[in-house]
Amino acid sequence: MKRTRQYALWLGLLAVPACAQSVDEAAQPAGPDAVPATVVVEGRRPGPGVWKVSKGTHVMWVFGTYAPLPQKMQWDASRVERLVAKSQEVLTPPVAKAHIGFFRGLTALPSLIGIKRNPDDAVLHDVVPPDVYDHWTVLKAKYIGNDDGVEHYRPVFAGEELLLAGLKKSGLSYGGEVLDTIQDIAKKNNVKLSDSGYDVMLDDPRKLVRDFKNSQVDDLVCFTRTLDSLDVDLETMRVRANAWANGDIAEIRGLNFAERRDACLDAVLNSSIAKDAAALRQMRERLRASWLKAAEKALANNATTFAVLEIQDIVGPTSYLAALQSRGYAVESPR
């Protein structure tokens, strides 16, 4: 079952959080062995407060998650635990999931092998401009080391691998521990867990994956942006991880959520094969609409609801809560 989930994974292959550029370039580490300008926090931390959405006597508490977080941080979930225990329902973050059936999944699994690799066994040197490849070589040596397997990856996947390696060296971890903890709290208190996303129905997933493997994807913009801003992005993520861990809402609001993730996701969703798959079109808009529908339903049916969103969907330019506010709901930010 774990392997069949790869269909959902490749649809969301660029779920690494959008990198911001709000930190001055002078804050960059000076060289490969330089100590990061921002030291990530450790120990037990409260995380951010919760947003309150209400209409009449019905309330929805909204908690914002963020990744990556400090590797040595332990999240104090006591406040969230009290709110979840008093709720009738917990809405998990919206995700687009591909449902293809168990036996169809087994027959298609072989076609997933090598999905990260360039077509025709090309290497990065063959598919990106010389100056971009030179920049990649420097950053690869700094963060990844001598792993030559990544040289066969498509640029979009190579960039993701570089970013993940950079996170590890920066004392950050891209895990799902916070959401796992909230789900465990809900189960312990017999609170209903509800999916706020939607199902992606693929007519022929095996053909879609095969076509993706054999097609060129215009992911140079994604790759170049990753290389050009990596050191600044890592510094910004350290700042943002600290702000989340310490519950510093003012700092969180002041951080710019830039467009790296959108550029990388567009590389896949705007490819010829994605355009031919109706289920992949307007994914972000459909996720937003799906969550808003689930949230309004929960607010109507429950006295108290607890919802989880990524923090950028709360304070970012396309805030889901701003959309609820425009529909007549009262929205209060944590202090």
Rank of each mutant, 00 (worst) to 15 (best):
E332T: 14
N301V: 11
F63N: 11
L13D: 15
I100E: 06
I115V: 14
S170A: 13
R288G: 02
I185E: 04
A277F: 00
W244V: 09
G328N: 06
A258H: 15
K52G: 08
E160H: 10
L112K: 01
L9R: 11
K97P: 00
A303P: 07
V268P: 00
F63S: 11
K52V: 15
A243Q: 05
S78E: 06
K72V: 06
D76T: 01
V209N: 05
E42W: 03
T4P: 00
E160D: 15
L269N: 07
D203P: 04
E296S: 03
R3T: 12
R225F: 04
R240M: 13
L9F: 12
V331A: 07
S326Y: 01
Y133I: 02
V23K: 10
P46L: 00
V80L: 11
F63Q: 08
T57G: 13
V178G: 02
F103K: 09
S194W: 01
I182T: 03
I314P: 02
T226G: 04
A289N: 10
H125M: 08
R240C: 07
R79Y: 08
L269Y: 13
L230I: 12
V50R: 14
M73E: 09
A108T: 09
A300L: 09
V123W: 07
F102A: 14
G31T: 05
S326I: 03
A26M: 09
L9M: 11
A34H: 11
F63C: 05
T226P: 01
L83A: 01
E259H: 08
A37D: 11
D126G: 04
Y143D: 02
V59C: 04
